[in-house]
Deep mutational scan, measured.
Amino acid sequence: MEVRTIKVFTTVDNINLHTQVVDMSMTYGQQFGPTYLDGADVTKIKPHNSHEGKTFYVLPNDDTLRVEAFEYYHTTDPSFLGRYMSALNHTKKWKYPQVNGLTSIKWADNNCYLATALLTLQQIELKFNPPALQDAYYRARAGEAANFCALILAYCNKTVGELGDVRETMSYLFQHANLDSCKRVLNVVCKTCGQQQTTLKGVEAVMYMGTLSYEQFKKGVQIPCTCGKQATKYLVQQESPFVMMSAPPAQYELKHGTFTCASEYTGNYQCGHYKHITSKETLYCIDGALLTKSSEYKGPITDVFYKENSYTTTIK
């Protein structure tokens, strides 16, 4: 009895394709271990004539594949690729409408935090270190965002349907971005203890939790000093293409032309909904596939993004 075979390709990165001759009487799992086709788990399936010449994702289970996976995804987590594939199996079914010149995501599976993050990423200057993220990001900007969303979920250790947080998501993504040249110098002034300067680099240099107003941050924000008295913390120097200011959701007025974009969060910790506000020729609110415009805006804002380049204080 002759062994019926077909020729397929296996890959971990969709760049390096490895030619395989597979036995049609055995499952993919018996031949390769966990195997995925377009995100779908085909591990328990036997090869079919229609699979001839198709590319299958496999887990990096030998040295060659491990090197290829690390170079593309910059992670050695053995569960990463499987999590990416199972997320992709959902995100490829989502709709990605162009809204006001940006790629958004039609609401499904509690994905409003991903839509808000995706919209924000198209408006701030950011370059990702893992080629996987950078490639998928370019495709997302062009309207094909399924891979990018699935990668975000995998890097953030999230599953489809789980509630997510924009600030946490951005923080994970910033860790995989090139923020080497970003720098922030802060000064804390206390009447009792004097003053202390701190220099922050990388992710810490672009994120701040405690106030939404970048102007206020430049002037000074009140913080408790270690001595128990009130101290003032203010920005001395900022070198970065953008800054992200966050605070627990509270009524906040966004003035046209003073910011790049913002995240609105309605609801409580267990259950809520994100919308995205962007400042173009007027203010726009993007909620999944829905767009509304207004000249002014007041609502429960939790993150505001500002364009920056270089700032030095005039406070002496």
Rank of each mutant, 00 (worst) to 15 (best):
E2G: 14
E2F: 09
V3T: 14
R4D: 14
R4G: 12
R4N: 13
T5C: 13
T5K: 12
T5P: 11
I6H: 07
I6L: 12
I6P: 07
K7Q: 10
K7G: 11
V8N: 05
F9Q: 10
T10L: 12
V12T: 08
V12S: 06
D13R: 10
D13V: 01
N14A: 08
N14Q: 11
L17P: 00
L17T: 15
T19M: 06
Q20C: 08
Q20V: 12
V21G: 11
V21W: 14
V22F: 05
D23A: 11
M24S: 12
M24G: 10
S25K: 07
M26H: 15
Q30E: 12
Q30S: 13
Q30L: 12
Q30V: 10
Q30D: 14
Q31W: 13
P34M: 14
T35F: 11
L37C: 12
G39D: 08
D41V: 11
V42G: 02
V42T: 07
T43D: 09
K44A: 11
I45C: 12
I45V: 13
I45F: 14
I45W: 14
I45H: 14
K46Q: 12
N49G: 11
N49I: 13
N49F: 10
S50R: 12
S50P: 13
H51E: 11
H51W: 02
H51K: 02
K54I: 12
K54T: 13
K54S: 12
K54F: 10
T55A: 09
T55R: 10
T55E: 04
F56P: 00
F56D: 06
F56S: 05
F56C: 11
V58T: 09
V58K: 06
L59R: 06
L59V: 10
D62T: 11
D62H: 10
T64E: 15
T64M: 13
L65N: 07
R66M: 13
V67F: 13
E68C: 05
A69E: 08
A69T: 10
A69I: 10
A69Q: 10
F70K: 11
F70Y: 03
E71F: 06
E71M: 01
Y73T: 06
Y73L: 04
H74Q: 11
T75D: 07
T75M: 14
T76F: 10
D77Q: 03
D77E: 09
P78M: 14
P78F: 06
P78K: 13
S79F: 15
F80G: 02
L81Q: 05
L81R: 05
R83M: 07
Y84D: 05
Y84M: 03
A87V: 06
A87D: 07
L88Q: 04
L88G: 04
N89T: 09
N89K: 12
H90Y: 11
H90L: 12
T91P: 03
K92E: 07
K93F: 10
W94R: 02
P97A: 13
P97R: 06
P97S: 15
P97E: 15
Q98M: 11
V99C: 10
L102R: 09
T103W: 07
S104E: 03
I105C: 07
K106R: 00
N111I: 04
Y113A: 08
Y113S: 05
L114H: 07
L114Y: 03
L114C: 01
A115E: 06
T116E: 05
T116W: 02
T116Q: 04
A117Y: 10
L118F: 12
L118A: 02
L119I: 09
L121V: 11
L121R: 04
Q122N: 03
Q123I: 04
Q123W: 01
Q123P: 02
I124E: 06
E125D: 14
E125H: 06
L126T: 06
L126R: 03
K127L: 09
N129I: 06
N129L: 06
P130G: 03
A132L: 03
L133A: 08
A136I: 01
A136C: 03
Y137K: 01
Y137M: 13
Y137I: 08
R139Q: 11
R139S: 12
A140N: 04
A140S: 06
R141F: 08
R141Y: 06
R141L: 11
R141Q: 11
A142Y: 10
E144C: 10
A146I: 01
A146R: 02
F148Q: 04
F148T: 00
F148R: 03
A150V: 03
L151Y: 05
L153F: 04
L153M: 10
A154S: 07
A154R: 03
A154N: 03
C156Y: 03
K158W: 00
T159G: 12
T159K: 14
T159Y: 11
V160E: 07
G161D: 06
L163D: 00
L163R: 15
L163P: 14
L163G: 14
G164H: 04
V166F: 15
R167F: 07
R167V: 03
R167N: 02
E168A: 10
T169G: 04
T169H: 02
L173D: 04
F174H: 00
Q175C: 07
Q175E: 08
Q175N: 08
A177W: 00
A177M: 06
A177R: 03
A177N: 07
N178C: 09
L179G: 00
L179K: 11
D180S: 11
D180R: 09
S181V: 04
S181L: 09
V185Y: 02
V185C: 04
V185Q: 05
L186P: 01
L186A: 07
N187G: 11
N187V: 10
V188H: 07
V188E: 00
V188R: 03
V189S: 13
C190I: 03
C190N: 01
T192Q: 11
Q197V: 12
T198R: 11
T198Q: 14
L200S: 07
L200P: 02
L200D: 08
G202K: 03
V203C: 11
A205M: 00
A205T: 02
V206M: 00
M207W: 02
G210E: 02
T211M: 05
T211Q: 03
T211W: 03
L212N: 00
E215W: 06
Q216H: 10
F217L: 15
K218T: 01
K218L: 02
K218M: 02
K218Y: 01
K219E: 02
G220Q: 05
V221F: 06
V221M: 08
V221S: 03
Q222C: 09
Q222S: 12
Q222M: 12
Q222E: 12
Q222V: 11
T226M: 10
T226I: 13
T226W: 03
C227H: 00
G228L: 03
K229M: 11
K229S: 14
K233N: 04
K233H: 07
Y234E: 04
L235P: 03
L235C: 15
L235K: 01
V236P: 01
Q237R: 10
Q237V: 08
Q238E: 03
Q238A: 03
E239L: 07
S240R: 02
S240A: 02
F242S: 04
V243Y: 02
V243M: 00
M244C: 02
M244I: 06
M245T: 02
M245E: 00
M245G: 00
S246E: 01
A247K: 13
A247M: 11
A247V: 06
P248Y: 04
P249M: 04
Q251S: 08
Q251K: 09
Y252M: 07
E253H: 08
L254K: 00
L254Y: 09
K255A: 06
H256C: 15
H256Q: 14
F259E: 00
F259H: 06
T260A: 11
C261T: 00
A262V: 03
E264S: 09
E264R: 08
E264F: 04
E264W: 03
Y265C: 00
T266R: 03
T266K: 00
G267M: 14
G267T: 15
G267A: 15
N268K: 15
N268P: 15
N268T: 13
Y269A: 15
Y269Q: 15
Q270P: 09
G272D: 00
H273K: 04
K275D: 01
H276W: 06
I277Q: 10
T278W: 00
S279G: 09
E281D: 13
E281C: 11
E281Y: 08
L283P: 02
Y284I: 14
C285G: 08
D287G: 05
D287H: 00
D287W: 02
L290Y: 14
L290W: 11
L290I: 13
T292N: 10
K293Q: 15
S295R: 10
S295A: 13
S295W: 10
E296S: 14
Y297W: 07
Y297N: 06
G299Y: 02
P300N: 09
P300T: 15
I301P: 06
I301C: 07
T302M: 04
T302V: 15
D303W: 02
V304T: 01
V304A: 05
F305M: 03
Y306F: 10
Y306D: 05
K307N: 07
E308F: 04
N309K: 13
S310Q: 14
S310E: 08
S310W: 09
T312M: 15
T314S: 15
T314F: 13
T314E: 12
K316Q: 15
K316S: 15
